[in-house]
């Protein structure tokens, strides 16, 4: 797996960041075999906002879990940054998540015993980042999501929208290349939903991060660059939406992402030294 890394960096512009090939997930209920994800293949490019759209029970959440290595696929290949996550053991997966993945959950999944700041710090704790730097990073991130004044509040003292902002800050604080979002606005009202979606989109755009979002709400799908319609574990259609985005701005973001990426790599090296 290590060998593929240099090649990976050279060809990153062309190669998709996530590649799914003939992925299957079959649940066994006694003697019955229930295919939740049935022979699915697609690819997501770097910086893309991809939406998995489907009704409840369509297998979209399972697909997300498979991509994040939370569940083991029954068949097929899942390549993320060219690495087959199906072949990783628990330790490698944990390291992989620390480095490349962020998560936004429907029920926020904040730890109630911790303040907003500590919650945002949490993923950095696992990366063994020293406390001072960790706090700085978390503070910056909270300011970015507009919670600069609520850093020392506990989740219970905040509204749903605020909690999800903390969740978003936590997902993005380590500057992961991919952020998975599982019904991120499922528990929020319409107005807050739009705010939160805008926030996710904006933060991701700033860092050219790839977003994979699961939702059942077609209105949210409009935020995506690519919508994958899923029904009964199969892909029905893939639709690419061209936003009214000028070429200039796109280029700008790409350049910016390059700079960010380098900074990221430096960070990682530092981490490893520590």
């Amino acid at each position: 797996m290590e060998e593929t890394e240099p090649k990976d960096t050279n060809t990153k512009e062309e190669a998709p960041i996530i590649e799914i090939k003939n992925v299957k997930k079959i649940y066994r209920m006694g003697n019955e075999r229930i295919p939740a994800v049935d022979d699915v293949s697609f690819a997501i490019k770097k910086g893309e906002f991809c939406c998995l759209l489907g009704t409840s029970g369509s297998g979209k959440s399972t697909l997300l879990n498979l991509m994040a290595g939370i569940e083991k696929a029954s068949g097929g290949q899942i390549l993320i940054k060219g690495k087959n996550i199906r072949k990783m053991n628990e330790k490698q997966l944990a390291k992989f998540r620390q480095k490349y993945l962020g998560f936004v959950f429907q029920s926020y999944n904040l730890l109630n015993s911790m303040t907003a700041l500590e919650n945002v710090e949490f993923p950095l704790v696992f990366k063994r980042i020293p406390a001072r730097r960790r706090k700085r990073m978390a503070r910056e991130m909270l300011v970015k999501v507009g919670l600069g004044s609520r850093m020392n509040h506990r989740p219970k003292q905040m509204s749903g929208g605020q909690q999800q902002r903390v969740g978003i800050a936590r997902a993005f604080v380590a500057k992961p290349e991919i952020v998975f979002a599982d019904e991120p606005t499922g528990n929020l009202d319409t107005r807050t939903t739009m705010e939160v979606m805008d926030l996710i989109k904006q933060v991701a755009k700033d860092n050219a991060q790839t977003i994979v979002m699961v939702t059942h709400d077609p209105r949210l799908a409009k935020f995506a660059d690519k919508i994958i319609h899923i029904l009964d574990g199969k892909i029905q259609s893939i639709e690419t939406i061209s936003h009214t985005m000028t070429e200039d701005t796109e280029e700008e973001t790409t350049e910016k992402s390059e700079a960010e990426r380098e900074e990221n790599e430096e960070d990682e090296k530092e981490n490893e030294k520590e």
């Binding site: 330790k91 944990a94 390291k95 998540r97 480095k99 998560f103 999944n109 696992f126």
Partner: peptide, 16 residues
Amino acid sequence: TKEIGIMKVLGCYIKD
């Protein structure tokens, strides 16, 4: 249970 699940998703090692 949930907290441990979250920790795992956030990249906590089993050892930790």
